[in-house]
Nucleic acid binder design. Structure first.
Lengths: 131, 131
DNA sequence: GAACGATATAACCAACTCGTTATGAAACAA
DNA sequence: TTGTTTCATAACGAGTTGGTTATATCGTTC
């Protein structure tokens, strides 16, 4: 029995999470919720789409574990679930060497690359292909 | 003259990036490329899908800026573009307070579990409604 | 109970995604 | 030239997504 109340690294979860984050409306909803819980109506207000559309976006976010919902009278306040984002952070950790390198010294790096570009190419070696 | 051939922070880019990452095959391709450049054929080998399917995955990844492609004879070696992942990292930074908190808690929890393994302290088990 | 306010669901449509097979194009090799 | 290898593209179908409008459900209030 796999007691998974916490999201683990199952690819499915990651699929759903990335897919949920791929929509700008949904990311905007998360941004809104980062400032505090909000009801569906409050969330829907700034968007140019219908309320049912927002309801479905919320459902997608909830299915991905990115938000949770309470129940206060007829309202269903939404709450950002930061835990789920950790999934993404963890996944990115695997590639830290790749994106971190480009972090602070992007310009410097680009200069270097541009300077040594042809040298790199003519050196034949390149980086091989690992394995 | 900083020819911006690399990705900016336009939401569109983020859409494409998250969408590209939402597919497990594509993430696996990135994992493969993290170990070194590879040709399309090499990339396709371990997957149970057709070569055209891989070609399209690569196209999606390239459109998102996650990979780039060279040209060596008839081969088109693919290269992981870590820079693009920085987009995601930057986006996640906005929510650091949310996932980082969960991070520490998880560490703490793991420590407890490891320390007392079977001695299950009534840690309060705050997991909301989970799934 | 009747009406209202907040949210979810149903039914539908257009567009996109991911897979397939078949075929085309480019670079090499004989 | 002819053939082979590597990769891309075309054409198609099934399933998913994101939007709509109309309606149902639930809780409050009169």
């Amino acid at each position: 029995m796999k007691q998974a109340s916490y999201a683990l690294d199952e690819p499915e979860r990651l699929d759903a999470t990335f897919a949920a984050l791929a929509d700008p409306t949904r990311r905007a909803i998360l941004a809104r919720l980062a400032q505090g819980d909000a009801t569906v109506k409050e969330i829907a207000a700034p968007f140019p789409v219908s309320q049912p559309a927002i309801s479905r976006h919320l459902k997608v976010l909830e299915s991905a574990g990115l938000i949770s919902r309470g129940r206060v009278a007829q309202r269903r306040p939404c709450h950002l679930e930061g835990r789920q984002l950790r999934l993404v952070v963890d996944w990115l950790e695997n590639y830290r060497g790749y994106w971190a390198e480009a972090y602070g010294r992007l310009d410097e790096l680009l200069d270097e690359l541009q300077a040594g570009d042809d040298a790199r190419q003519s050196s034949g070696g390149r980086e091989g292909q690992g394995t």
